[in-house]
């Protein structure tokens, strides 16, 4: 049993590396897209606001897999051909970003109106207020839901196996066909995903504690 697992492990770890890379890159895309979309939807001029709403609704309203296939199969007809890795990063990043935009919007809205008023009374501009006063406070409230989104993102990376990208899920199917050690392979893969999820949870908790400690002193302000 152990020998079997050791045999499978190198290939699976190679897939794991790809899964981690995808998750990290897509997370960067997701955060960026979410921030831009949330701020545009809330404070942008009208056309930009509509664009942000359309982005959020389309990417939340359709399947991640459909988005992935669309970017992979249809985009080339528009003259845009991306590497499978780039397609994976963009599709997953934009998908999670649409949910993230609503998370950011919600946490901005949860900040007491008095903070905006105090900033206005001090003559701070809207973007200054957002950047210096509101977002730093909203940041703490955002961390737990973003932790969940990153886990959704990690789970979502399994989809890229369907556009022939060699991630953990892909390696699992490949090994399954070659070795037929079905039980060992899929159990191992589930455990690896579980460990990655737990890692995300631990990292986000640590971040939350760190940030909250800085802010806790000022909680009742």
């Amino acid at each position: 049993m152990f020998a079997e697992i050791l045999e499978l492990l190198p290939e699976l770890l190679r897939g794991t590396l790809m899964t981690v890379e995808l998750t990290l890159c897509a997370a960067v895309v997701a955060i960026t897209a979410a921030l831009i979309a949330a701020v545009s939807k809330m404070y942008g001029p009208r056309p930009l606001r509509w664009l942000a709403i359309a982005y959020i609704e389309v990417f939340r309203g359709t399947s991640a897999l459909v988005q992935l296939f669309w970017l992979f199969f249809v985009l080339p007809y528009f003259g845009v051909t991306l590497e499978p890795f780039a397609v994976g990063v963009v599709a997953l990043g934009l998908n999670i970003g649409a949910y993230g935009a609503e998370v950011i919007r919600g946490s901005i809205l949860s900040i007491d109106k008095g903070q905006w008023e105090a900033a206005t009374a001090l003559n701070l501009g809207r973007m200054q207020t957002l950047r210096r006063i509101i977002l730093p406070q909203a940041f703490v409230a955002m961390i737990p839901p973003w932790g969940n989104l990153f886990i959704e993102l990690l789970k979502g990376t399994a989809l890229v196996s369907m556009i022939t990208l060699g991630d953990l899920a892909f390696k699992a199917q490949q090994l399954n066909q070659n070795t037929l050690r079905t039980l060992q392979i899929f159990s191992l893969v589930l455990i690896i995903y579980l460990c990655l999820s737990l890692l995300i949870t631990v990292l986000m908790r640590t971040l939350e504690h760190r940030v909250a400690r800085g802010l806790l002193r000022g909680r009742a302000g």
């Binding site: 007491d112 008095g114 903070q115 008023e117 105090a118 009374a121 001090l122 003559n123 006063i133 730093p136 406070q137 800085g214 802010l215 000022g218 909680r219 009742a220 302000g221």
Partner: peptide
């Protein structure tokens, strides 16, 4: 810029 205000609930920036 000519006007300053102090609020009932302080509205200090907690962070």
């Amino acid at each position: 810029a000519k006007i300053g205000m102090v609020f009932q609930h302080f509205n200090l920036f907690p962070h």
